[in-house]
């Protein structure tokens, strides 16, 4: 291991005897990776067999396959610690971030990797995020003040701030049966408030078949919209007009899959219900 050999212990701490953890033996697994061209053309699975260590994330393993076996493997990644939101995919049929999912913790001898649903396929594990961002304002904020600090604040800081917890990864879009067109719940007898029933794609149908203007914008944009409402109450009417519009909250059928899938502790289903309960937007 050339990297390890070149490690230079530099501080007294680094040179001090460390109870170095034994590196556990790897296990050989099969990684079944979805491959395709643009639009899902020529979709198939390729199997890669390789040794996996307990500490390896799915992303670590993908990087190893790309560097050592197949440089043409297409997947998105950037921060490797669940902040950027680029590496969401379906891992053994569930939406997860590849960077924080330990391969061996999945407990299967074959690990299947597929792209997110609900978004157009660009290739292999990569989807086109533009349809999601089409419903999130460019200028909507991404930082918010901390509600109340329990401590003092340093000189020059009026209130501590936080980046939004939503990392806009698309996991909720894929998990939502409505936005992914996999909803097998029977159509509702009547819609609340006499709203027109949303266009429901048949299970398994290509979501692209549904008329664009009546399709659900998905959980992530509505969650972002609710946060923007909190930031800018003065824009309530305009924001609710979007949230309660033809592609808005009325499509939600309370599956709650979005909240379960979120890797970041956001609960989009709650945001959607908040919007549903609000008056305004020219609908109530």
């Amino acid at each position: 291991m050339s990297d390890a050999e070149k490690t230079v212990p530099e501080s007294a701490d680094a040179a001090a005897p460390e109870s170095a953890p034994e590196r556990q033996a790897p296990r050989t697994l099969t990684v079944r990776v979805h491959r395709c061209g643009p639009g899902g053309a020529n979709a198939r699975f390729d199997d890669f067999r390789l040794p996996v260590r307990p500490e390896d994330s799915v992303l670590d393993v993908l990087d190893r396959i790309r560097v050592e076996t197949d440089p043409t493997l297409v997947y998105r990644h950037s921060c490797h610690h669940s902040s950027c939101g680029t590496c969401a995919m379906r891992i053994n049929g569930r939406e997860r971030l590849a960077c924080i999912t330990r391969m061996l913790a999945l407990g299967t001898d074959v690990v299947t990797l597929e792209p997110l649903r609900a978004l157009p396929l660009l290739g292999d594990l990569m989807v086109d995020m533009r349809p999601m961002f089409a419903h999130i304002g460019d200028d909507w904020g991404y930082v918010r003040p901390v509600e109340k600090a329990s401590t003092g604040v340093p000189h020059g800081v009026a209130r501590y701030t936080r980046l939004e917890n939503c990392i806009e990864c698309g996991a909720c879009m894929s998990a939502c049966p409505v936005s992914s067109g996999t909803d097998d719940m029977p159509p509702p007898e009547a819609r609340r408030g006499g709203h027109e029933a949303p266009a429901q794609a048949a299970p398994g149908a290509d979501v692209a078949d549904a008329p664009q203007e009546r399709m659900f914008m998905g959980p992530a944009p509505l969650a972002a919209l609710n946060r923007e409402l909190a930031r800018h109450p003065e824009q309530r009417e305009a924001l609710l007009h979007i949230g309660k519009g033809p592609q808005g909250e009325k499509h939600c059928r309370r599956h709650l899959a979005c909240s379960r899938a979120c890797p970041s502790g956001v609960y989009p289903a709650k945001d959607i219900m908040d919007i549903r309960m609000m008056h305004g937007g020219g609908k109530d």
């Binding site: 050339s2 490690t7 530099e10 460390e18 670590d60 917890n165 970041s264």
Partner: peptide, 27 residues
């Protein structure tokens, strides 16, 4: 956000494609 990032170790290599994550560095 709700994380804390701890860093960082440093070594030198000629190959930026194979980056090990030694468990003893994590510890």
């Amino acid at each position: 956000r709700r994380l804390s990032v701890l860093g960082t170790s440093m070594w030198l290599t000629d190959d930026p494609d194979h980056l090990d994550i030694p468990p003893e560095h994590v510890q």
